[in-house]
Design a protein around this nucleic acid. Structure first.
Lengths: 133, 133
DNA sequence: ATAGATGCAAAGGGTTTGCACTTGA
DNA sequence: TCAAGTGCAAACCCTTTGCATCTAT
């Protein structure tokens, strides 16, 4: 008999692919897309496939390690979920997405009566510090 | 000689397809996606193709008749551009997108110094009036 | 008559899935 | 050992594009 209780055959294994992906996400300063994650992780795991990145992202989302950041018209980006509540700024010049500290807050009242607001996303668009020079 | 000034060969023609699409957008109470527009307009123009809808949307965006509404993970929706500034609520139960009257405003300060905020989008997620019952 | 518009189908880009092979526990 | 994980390629979905045909003007 094994140490595993009956039925619990679904354990997550530690693989160098996932390690590399988590590593990338731990060190990035801004949200990354699947392809960016692949490019960054490919350094430590040469034959890493994009499908593996997507599968890892899905699990990391499910286990609450990552959260999804989506900007209109662009593929989703991901960042660590343990960052405190914040929003995002998309620079139309360089295309990068930056984290924004503030939050207008109190959005529960923004919706009409009867609508239950559970979460929100605030997206700012403009030109970032660097590109404005 | 024609009434057209020389060089202005690029005029938009009035076709029943575009009429139908504009008609749909004039009467919808909420943002619609390309497929929804196609379904709605197909009533008056039987063989309407999705490509035509996309092409019409692109032109209507360009001429400022429509504006784009994008919700994370979903195909873009469109609504009339002449609506006053507002935001959107996405019901996780029925999947519909509703217009929200309010706006937290004053978001120019939300970004760090040096970042120029040109526009913003506020997305609310939750359960709508009807689905909550 | 003729350039613009349409419809179909094929092509593209991003994401997901099927499947045989590999690998961690 | 052997199921979970991986890599590749095919499948998918949404959107765009190519092209022959159609149609406003």
């Amino acid at each position: 008999m094994r140490a595993e209780p009956a039925g619990s055959s679904c354990v997550e294994r530690k693989t160098k692919q996932r390690d590399a992906i988590k590593e990338v996400m731990l060190h990035t300063a801004r949200p990354l897309g699947p392809q960016e994650i692949l490019d960054a992780a490919a350094g430590s795991v040469p034959n890493l496939g994009i499908a593996t990145v997507y599968r890892a992202i899905k699990e990391l989302l499910a286990e609450g390690f990552l959260s999804k950041v989506e900007m209109p018209g662009e593929p989703a980006r991901y960042e660590r979920a343990d960052l405190k509540h914040h929003h995002h700024f998309h620079c139309r010049s360089c295309g990068k997405v930056y984290d924004i500290a503030g939050c207008p807050g109190n959005l529960a009242n923004a919706a009409p009566k009867g609508f239950k607001v559970e979460s929100h996303e605030l997206l700012l668009f403009g030109v970032c510090d660097r590109c404005d020079k």
